[in-house]
Design a protein around this nucleic acid. Sequence first.
RNA 1: GUAGCCAUAGCUCAGUUGGUUAGAGCAUCAGAUUGUGGUUCUGAGGGUCGUGGGUUCGAGCCCCAUUGGUUACCCCA
Length: 458
Amino acid sequence: MSKPSLPQGTRDFGPDTVRKRNYILNTIRNVFELYGFQPLETPAMENLDTLMGKYGEEGDKLIFKILNNGLDHADKKNQARTDFEKVLEGKNAKGITERALKYDLTIPFARYVAMNHAQLSYPFKRYQIQPVWRADRPQKGRYREFYQCDADVVGSTALLNEVELACIYNDVFSKLGIKNYELKINHRKILTALAEVCGGAEKMMDITLAIDKLEKIGIVKVKDELSQRGLAAEQINIIEKYLNISGSNKEILTGLNSLIGNTETGKKGIEEVSYVLNNLKPQTFNLKPDPTLARGLNYYTGIIFEVKAPAEIKIGSIGGGGRYDDLTGLFGVPGIPGVGISFGVDRIYDVMEELNLFPADVHIGTQVLFFNLGDAESQAAFGLMQQLRQKNIRCELYHESSKFDKQFKYAEKKNIPYIIIIGEKELKENTCTIKNLSASQQETIAVNNLGNYHFASS
RNA sequence: GUAGCCAUAGCUCAGUUGGUUAGAGCAUCAGAUUGUGGUUCUGAGGGUCGUGGGUUCGAGCCCCAUUGGUUACCCCA
């Protein structure tokens, strides 16, 4: 038998990790609820059709496909062989694979909205916290299975939604104690306008892909890439001017205005970004317009967001989102616009771990351990324990009568803050001894008073 | 898909130019300690050196292959 192992890019989560992650998820969930979002869950797998072509060419390659069952069935063998030939050519064959693991939460949500559009009341605000899968090569901060937390509003074009989503980012990160994150905002129309001004509206994708890398590879290489992608020198010149726009939020907007403000689309984009900025206090929100922000997913059409982790932690983006005018149109139900954001929980976890931001009491599960000091003693302890459980105190009784040393060490390892000793003496006197392990203090009280004892939570 | 690096005890790692019986810390278990833990002391268990081949009198170390992990590119949370 070979050693047990995990598939590449997946992880087990031990008790401590799950506790910490739940702390993050609960924080996010509470904020979503606070803003009136409703929970939604969709299956782990979707029909392959639902996902293919929604994430661009690269994205398609990263979708985890599921092999159909029953390929060895006698009647299907020949069909399976010819279909497999198609797969070898890089095509999809329904006979081989027709389902896939979900790649993100947005497209399944769009599918859900398209299927239920008549029943929903708009604007429909949903949040969704589920794992997604990508057949990517794992590396630092990148996994093949990871959680996403999304909140989306569909059925409304109001920019109020964008403002609220920015507020959600701010609320969540400040509750988690992540201070120096940076919330960047841009607009797809601004990028479109840049392409128009360059005289190559159809080059929009090439331009955005290249300038998105500015921070990583520098202006010189961006220009190289642009010329490789077939842009002329004077076009690249304009793009360079665009990339050089910097300064305060106001200066950035003015810069954009003078460069692309004379186009219809550019004007509209700048207006919308200004609206969001004006309705928030950028200094308290770490909110910054960033003309170089592009975001890969090609369904965005309006404002786009990205959250960068504090600079000292080189982990990149910990969240992102944007507006899409017609996501459900892909599923035959046009005219439902939406806007959404996403939190990268696994990366937020890593950031919090590195900055030591988890509160100490996330590790406390069991609050009280009853020592087991013999048959009669443990029977008495069991009765008291059930009373405490009735009062919502999490407690357990050591599984067998053994030395103090062992029982203490068990409590310590499980981070149990209190122990209760009921031995021969206590049994006789109808008392119990409560010890606070971290304070190393103990007191003996009558068992009748145990129900009213205050167990501090940390 | 492309490229680099790594693989030795449960975990983190030493291991000299290739030379006798492969080590340490942590963890585990037992004892000092039959009603008071964290610190300490003593002892014990634990290894096909990822796998297969090759070079050599001799391989944990060198060569080839293979598997797994990891990092970077592409792309992305």
